[in-house]
Amino acid sequence: MNLTDRRVLPLALNAIGIVAVAVASFASTSVPRSGWFAVATVLALLTWAIVVPLQRVFVQSQRRSAVLRWVRRAATVVGVVAASLSVAPSNGIHLAPLAILVILAVSDDTESIWWGAALSALSFVLTPIGALSAGLGTAGVLGYLASNAVWLLIGVSRRQARAATRRNRELAEQQAATHEQEARASALAAREAVARDIHDVLAHSLGGLVIQLDAAEALLESGRTSDAQAKVAQARALAAEGLADARRAVAALRSPDDPDSSEQSPVDLAGAAERLLRAHRELGGEADARVDLAAAAAPLQASVANAFERALQEALSNARRHAPGEPVSVELTAGADRIDLAVSNRVVAGRTPSDLGGGHGLVGMAERFAQLPGGTVSATERDGRFVVSATASLAAG
């Protein structure tokens, strides 16, 4: 058994103290040899030996026994009474068991503070009685009472220290739980962001591939091989572009601090808009576009530029899917403190706004813009046209 163990060392030290007090009490020639003193000594030492291990077991127990509590209380009362009455006749030898019992009772935060205070008060009452029976003068009585006050103060100090330790432990546990919740929320937000990007990439790339391959098939059937090859080449370029976008979205989830992730890399929004419009036209769509970002007071933040790129991509994909062949009007403009996007197309008979890809693209768009300062998104039918609008402020942050 390792005596330096935190669980063993206190018990070993208390055992040494009990033996030392017993030897001093019965071997000293200056203490009385009366029967009552011997009984008091035995009771003080016995309760000391009982209360210390019971206290440790009770405090560390997950389920505290009521019987154990009352045994400990009874032993403590008996020990305090015996030690208080015999402390003066023992010439202060019994201060040790009295101090241990009072300090343990007062510092025990599993009991009411009034329990420890009552035992301390009992020692203040009984110590003078024992001192007077031993013929001790006023100065000696006051000295022992001062010792009792010290034990009380030590017990209160230990109680406060334990309470502070418990509060710190609870605070650390709460902070750990909060950090865990924040980590989970961050991971969930990252997954949602990737899900939005993957949805937009697939809606744009796969939808475009279907259109290109259908056109290539039709051209092959009509014998226009060179035109079909051109369509296949465009389809291949669109597939490569979509694959690259998907890889960037996955990389953003796997390595959120990667400088190549979409949230970290700067985005040329004007260039991205022209690329999307060119792809839309190559897929057979018509677009009347106005892109003017020159009035922005500062370079666009990556999160803002990405949000508007994805919004334009989703709006154009929806237009191709739900209003094929209809001209699309696009306005992407920036002022000194805000940026706006409006994409509209004529509503095709039999189509309703709720048809738009099950609503997932618009939901993802709204989630993305909700994270931007002043970000809003709307998708409504106005005067026979379906209009997707998005706006965000360009406040520095």
Rank of each mutant, 00 (worst) to 15 (best):
L3I: 12
T4A: 13
L9P: 03
L9E: 08
L9D: 01
L9I: 01
N14S: 08
S34L: 09
S34R: 08
W36D: 10
W36I: 14
W36M: 12
V42Y: 04
L43W: 05
A44M: 02
W48M: 14
V52K: 02
V52E: 03
V57H: 13
S61I: 06
R64W: 07
A66G: 07
A66W: 12
A66S: 14
V67P: 02
R69N: 11
W70Y: 13
R72F: 05
A74Y: 04
T76L: 08
T76P: 06
L85Q: 02
L101R: 02
V102W: 00
I103H: 04
V106N: 03
D109T: 10
T110K: 10
E111H: 10
S112H: 12
I113H: 08
W115L: 05
A117G: 13
A118W: 06
S120A: 15
V125M: 05
V125L: 14
G130N: 01
L132F: 14
L136H: 05
L136T: 14
L136C: 11
G137Y: 11
G137I: 09
T138Y: 13
A139S: 11
A139F: 09
V150K: 03
R159I: 00
Q160A: 13
R162K: 11
N168F: 08
A172N: 07
Q174D: 11
H179S: 13
E180R: 13
E180T: 12
E182R: 12
A185P: 00
A187V: 05
A189V: 02
A190I: 03
A190M: 07
V194D: 01
D197C: 08
D197Q: 13
I198R: 04
I198T: 04
D200S: 15
L202S: 12
H204L: 12
S205H: 04
L206M: 12
G207I: 03
Q212A: 15
L213F: 12
A215G: 06
L219A: 11
L220H: 02
E221C: 09
S226D: 15
A230G: 07
V232W: 03
Q234Y: 06
A237R: 10
A237W: 02
A239T: 04
A239N: 05
A240N: 10
G242V: 09
A244R: 14
R248K: 09
V250I: 15
A252I: 04
L253S: 02
D257I: 09
S261A: 15
S261F: 03
E263K: 10
S265Q: 14
S265I: 12
V267R: 09
G271F: 09
E274A: 15
L283N: 01
L283R: 12
G284H: 07
A287F: 06
R290Y: 04
V291E: 01
A294W: 05
A298E: 13
A298L: 11
L300N: 00
V304A: 02
N306C: 05
E309A: 14
E309Y: 00
E314C: 08
S317D: 02
H322N: 07
E326A: 15
P327E: 11
S329A: 13
L332Q: 00
A336M: 06
R338L: 09
S344D: 07
N345Q: 08
N345W: 07
V347A: 14
A349R: 13
G357P: 00
G359R: 08
G359T: 07
H360A: 15
G364N: 06
M365H: 00
A366Y: 02
E367T: 09
L372P: 01
G374T: 04
T376A: 10
G384Y: 09
R385E: 09
F386P: 01
A390K: 02
T391I: 09
